[in-house]
Design a protein around this nucleic acid. Structure first.
Length: 599
RNA sequence: UCGGGGAUGGUGUAAUUGGCAACACAACUGGUUCUGGUCCAGUCAUUGGGGGUUCGAGUCCUCCUCCCCGAACCA
């Protein structure tokens, strides 16, 4: 797995660093199609927040450009004033920077409205566009359907002069919303629905966050996108698979425009499609995300359970992990859905190397060392233990952790009646306290209900280095926090927001699959004193528990980014389902097919 | 129904373009270890189905099956 994190060799699963898009770019370079230029763009509509799905497109657009010495612009595809706003523009710029990409320039499709308008008049003059009087429904009917040709609109043969006059009237605000549109005059019988006289302009008497009230007609996506690419000098216009059919139209528009006037060297841009990134148990649809936020299912657009980039940031996912993930999954023309675990594995890989270690106890159980020394006043001695900050990185140094006779340990780390393969503390057994001593459990105190309230141990003063002089071994090392020095913290533990692999697949509404207990707030957790030095937004590893990110607004609130791999949890899981499995096989008599864990 | 795209293990991505099916995630086995973490070693697919061409097919031909996208004045 070393190739995974070596940024020098971006790979697509096989470590080759090649894919069909890079093949195309290299072929174009070899044939000098664009006079040696490579230029891409990331073109979001500013109507929502960037999410993990965008991250893949961003990584592709930017890395393809930079790998070949080209450039990549951020372009806001702001052609629909009804849905867009400057807040989203700012958020996208910010999130893009956080992800680690810097566009050579920031552009706006709205800056091209004049040019688009001029070109539209040109197409009208050439008889390639006309003003349509029919309403949206009539247009839809006239378009026909799959396997059914469309029919020409009565407006289709309107004289050029009249088209020009009406178009100018539309632009001048003389016609109400929805009364007319400008359509390209292509082919109502075309087998590709996109080519059946697509709409180029619609009337919207609406304020645009950038162009203000200059316009009351706005270009559609298809009429704006390829032309914006051409204006900017884009060479490779990368987009997702569902735009495949739009490509024919993209080319048609560009073929009928005087692009030479733009002055770019090399040929005109062309579109290539790749599969978008989808994750199981996850939803990226803006509509659904909005319902989650507005319906109070999550705390906001940066709730750590969401797939938005700001949520991942708040949760503690390092941008490098997201980038590595995007490079790793590669680009293909096959729709695919990845399990979030894969992303998590990149998060662990990154954080394992970088996150400082600390000790914290989520569910405290009191452990008393009965032979711990006291001073002359009978107060238990406090000793400073030296703990390694990151075993993966010696340069991270060490820190002092106060140790004394009364400690908090994890409830999970003690059992009165240990199940098989349980290595942790139990009466009579000796374990190691991390960075401390070997301790042996002598007995435990229980309350009236039989719950363990306190564990008694003796420590071996000879084992300060963590090893016993006589060479005896222990099977477990557990973490702890000195009770007298404990800093109270709050931890937020997350499960996936949706328990269904494909949210909404069952009932049609993804919200029906919202996991009711996707977040657990642990309020009585404690941590070692050094936790206070951790800056907001920083990520630490709580040893044996996982990676936790401090909330930027609340210093002692920790979001768990991801847990550690947990073999003990797997053993318990297997044990829990084992009886079920054998019962099932017994009753089925031939059907083996060992049941796979569905997660 | 028409057009477009696609199908390789539990999952995802590869395969020098007709030549030993590779890498990773997950899982499992063992080793190392002051984190049941990390690390190391190992196990886990004859490529959707049928037929054909070939010394040789994941790759070429053919028939079939299944999946995704497309009929906004959204992008």
């Amino acid at each position: 797995m070393p190739s995974r994190s070596s940024a020098s060799n971006p790979s697509s699963g096989d470590g080759s660093g090649r894919d069909f898009i890079r093949d195309l770019v290299e072929a174009d370079l070899a044939s000098d199609r664009f006079a040696g230029r490579v230029q891409t763009r990331f073109p979001p509509e500013p109507n929502g927040y960037l999410h993990i799905g965008h991250a893949k497109a961003i990584c592709l657009d930017f890395t393809v450009a930079t790998e070949y010495g080209g450039r990549c612009f951020l372009r806001f595809d702001d052609t629909n004033p009804a849905t867009e706003s400057p807040e989203y523009v700012d958020a996208m710029v910010e999130d893009l920077a956080w992800l680690g990409f810097e566009p050579q320039d920031i552009r706006y499709a709205s800056d091209y409205f004049e040019q688009l308008y001029a070109w539209a008049e040109l197409l009208i003059e050439r008889g390639l566009a006309y003003i349509e009087d029919q309403d949206a429904e009539a247009i839809s009917v006239g378009r026909g359907g799959f396997g059914r040709p469309g029919t020409d609109s009565p407006s289709r043969d309107r004289p050029i002069e009249e088209n020009l006059r009406l178009f100018r009237e539309m632009a001048a605000g003389q016609h109400p919303d929805g009364s007319r549109v400008l359509r390209a005059r292509i082919d109502m019988q075309h087998e590709n629905m996109q080519m059946r006289d697509p709409v180029m302009y619609r009337i919207r008497h609406e304020h645009h966050y950038r162009s203000g009230d200059r316009w009351c007609i706005y270009p559609t996506y298809d009429w704006a996108h390829g032309q914006s690419d051409a204006i900017e000098g884009v060479t490779h216009s990368l987009c997702t698979l569902e735009f495949r059919d739009n490509r024919t139209l993209y080319d048609w528009y560009l073929d009928h425009l005087p692009l030479d006037e733009l002055g770019h060297t090399g040929g005109r841009p062309y579109q290539t499609e790749f599969a978008r990134l989808e994750l199981t148990h996850t939803v990226t649809s803006k509509r659904v995300l909005r319902r989650l936020v507005e319906g109070g299912h999550v705390d906001g657009w940066d709730d750590p359970r969401l797939p938005t980039l700001r949520a991942l940031r708040r949760r503690g996912y390092p941008p490098a992990a997201i980038r590595d993930f995007c490079v790793y999954i590669g680009v293909a023309r096959t729709n695919s859905r990845h399990a979030p675990e894969l992303l998590e594995s990149f998060v662990r890989t990154e954080l394992n190397a970088t996150a400082p270690r600390r000790m914290a106890v989520l569910r405290p159980l009191k452990l008393v060392i009965t032979n711990w020394p006291t001073d002359d006043d009978g107060v238990p001695v406090t000793e400073l233990r030296e703990a390694v900050n990151n075993p993966e990185n010696p340069a991270a140094g060490t820190r002092q952790v106060p140790f004394s006779g009364t400690l908090w340990i994890e409830q999970d780390d003690f059992r009165l009646d240990p199940p098989p393969k349980y290595f942790r503390l139990t009466p009579g057994r000796e374990v190691r306290l991390r960075a401390g001593y070997l301790v042996r459990c002598t007995d435990a105190v229980t309350d009236n209900d039989g719950n363990v309230t306190e564990v008694h141990c003796t420590y071996d003063p000879q084992t300060s280095g963590g090893q016993a002089p006589d060479g005896r071994k222990v099977k477990a090392t557990i973490h702890w926090v000195s009770a007298a020095h404990a800093v109270p913290i709050t931890a937020a533990l997350y499960e996936r927001l949706f328990d269904a692999e494909l949210p909404g697949d069952r009932t049609g509404d993804p919200l029906d699959d919202v996991h009711p207990a996707s977040r657990e707030i642990v309020t009585d957790a404690v941590a070692e004193p050094a936790i206070a030095e951790v800056a907001g937004g920083a990520v630490v590893q709580f040893e044996r528990l996982g990676y936790f990110c401090t909330d930027s607004e609340s210093a002692l609130l920790f979001h768990r980014a991801v847990g550690l791999r947990d073999e003990w949890a797997n053993i318990q899981k297997r044990r829990a389902q084992a009886p079920k499995q054998s019962a099932k096989q017994g009753s089925e008599r031939g059907g083996r097919q060992p049941r796979r864990e569905a997660t």
